[in-house]
Design a protein around this nucleic acid. Structure first.
Lengths: 349, 349
DNA sequence: CTGAAAGCGCTAACAC
DNA sequence: GTGTTAGCGCTTTCAG
């Protein structure tokens, strides 16, 4: 591998000039620059990352801590990881992968000066890693909003806004009784982060729209779906709108409606809150609020880079979701010829 | 951050002694070692990765190139990535993430001495990256076996063995007519790597068992499944055994059998070849040959490390799959009380 | 607009 | 068993 000195010699300049050509940190005459660039080209020169890191205290690598086991939706994670990797390259950075189960990973890579920024996924409401990260004092972005971010920046889906949009959409169509079936009880218990925001968002939206609302968790199974539907209907008897925030349980919910003979959207309108990108093109999906995993990943990188470049204030950014109408919502009851498509009962995911 | 000199001073030794305590590359008296270790502990010392890389030409980082877009099974990829990351740590290495779409990534990270070994997923039969990798001259392991590995090591599932095991299992039960429905036509066309091995494996196994066999590709849809079944039955009229190598199409195949009134396993025995770990615990899965993504990831790391440590010969390792009986195979026709469970028609995945 | 030179923190001969 | 020292390849003052 050629070194910066080889390049300097080939170009007939000093090593520092080559360095400055590369970094652009001082002005270089066009002629010199051309000679240097040509030498770099010819020799196939690449700066040695370690040497550069040693001299500059910048590694141009950012760490991404990913939940690998058991975790929620693999598609979302992959989309997200892809977005981070892609965006990081645009900031001239590479991505070092850290896994959840290696608890000391964060200390190791920062202490060892392997990376100069951190993005940590899947932050829970009282995540113990937040303390660690705050102590490390590196530019950090949390995916998910903990109770106390301790001066760190956060990004997440705007769950509150998403459920609000869903409710508003249904209310605008004329629905007066709206049910929400959400995460499994365990999920809620485990990392109530978004669950809280969803709950508050639903309550606020229902109140603002002046409609009746009821919430229930739901397990991803037919009995689970039956129970959840029964629960919200018990509370709101004239329920005609349904917001589902549980991709796993969605098929069961639709299957239960079908087996009851409840037509969608003629009898009940359905809006699903789910990850964008994942299985985006599958036929037969309901109207949905799409959570933009890609945009969250991109935002996370931009935010962490901003802090690296010296931006001072930590920020919390909630990326809005948008509604995609796929014909599973319509005005309630006798509302003329309502939606177009109807949900086929035996659909699979 | 404390440096090695701080540690040396605190311990009352020279910097090189600290270095040798850390590397174990020469013997140190117990007393000295204890003092050094205590100083390291107290100061919270971590060697600077860049400095170490510069001095030793070893980064302790390996690059993993992952297919991010469109790719086959996300679950498999995640399992695999997890296995690589975990195993790499046991070799005291970290993992740098490279994505498929950044074509120059491999040159960049090797040229820049960012990593000292490479694992590249999703290698196709005539993958252009193989040439590049061979030229780079770093320890490399390919996931997937190209037509010409050009001196690089490869790991992959033993697809040939997997289909062989499936056929043998069915033949041993007494089946004399066995069908194989496999990847979608496009997949086969695109990266015929494993498709070829599957085909040859099936042919060989069928011949060895002395039974009749027929193969067909299959699309992941009900019409696709019908067509594939018709195709293999046309060739083997008394077909009683079915091997499915297409996780996406499996539900459709089972649904078609159910709608025909064909009982599993009484009328037809079914074996699926699919990724292990992914949705391992879902109920209602058929007897399967499980492709061990986790083991392939682990093997990939071990192999690349072996080459880093100086092992000379490149090797190609095919990780065997094992059969898990879930009661969807039984002796054909009047064969007494056959399998136990039966496949429910409306199952989802 | 360009060079010379002093490190960055560590490893690995080379000494004893 | 331990210390001394010369780099590894780059960035960045300091000088001109």
């Amino acid at each position: 591998m050629p070194t910066i000195n080889d390049v300097a010699e080939a170009a007939g300049v000093s090593a520092s000039t080559v360095s400055y050509v590369l970094s652009g940190k001082r002005s270089i005459s066009a002629a010199t620059r051309a000679r240097v660039e040509r030498a770099i080209e010819q020799l196939g020169y690449r700066p040695h990352a370690g040497a550069r890191a040693l001299a500059s205290s910048r590694t141009n690598v950012l760490a991404l801590m990913v939940p690998l086991r058991q975790s929620a939706d693999v598609n979302v994670i992959m989309d997200f990881v892809g977005a981070v990797a892609t965006r990081a390259r645009r900031h001239d950075h590479d991505v070092l992968l850290l896994t959840q189960d290696e608890t000391t990973g964060l200390e190791r890579v920062t202490g060892g000066s392997l990376v100069d920024a951190l993005i940590v996924m899947d932050i829970e409401l009282d995540d113990p890693r937040v303390d660690v990260l705050a102590r490390l004092g590196r530019p950090t972005v949390l995916i998910g909003v903990p109770r106390d971010p301790r001066g760190l920046s956060c990004v997440d889906f705007d769950f509150g806004g998403a459920v609000g949009t869903a409710v508003e959409h249904l209310a605008a169509l004329g629905h007066r009784g709206i049910g929400f079936v959400g995460s499994s009880p365990d999920a809620v218990a485990r990392r109530a982060g978004y669950a809280v925001r969803v709950r508050d968002g639903f309550r606020a939206a229902v109140a603002a729209a002046g409609v009746a609302g009821a919430m229930s968790p739901v397990e991803a199974s037919l009995p689970g779906a039956r129970a959840a539907l029964a629960a919200v209907r018990a509370e709101v008897p004239d329920l005609t709108g349904l917001v589902v925030h549980n991709e796993g349980a969605l098929p069961s919910v639709l299957a239960v409606l079908a087996e009851e003979g409840t037509r969608v959207p003629q009898d009940v309108s359905v809006v699903s809150i789910e990850a964008a990108d994942a299985s985006q093109h599958l036929p037969g999906r309901p109207t949905s609020i799409d959570l933009p995993s890609l945009e969250v990943g991109t935002a996370a990188v931009d935010m962490v880079m901003a802090r690296l470049e010296g931006s001072v204030a930590p920020e919390t950014r909630l990326v809005p979701a948008t509604l995609t109408d796929r014909g599973t919502t319509a005005p309630p009851r006798r509302g003329g010829r309502a939606g177009t498509r109807r949900v086929s009962p035996s659909r699979r995911r």
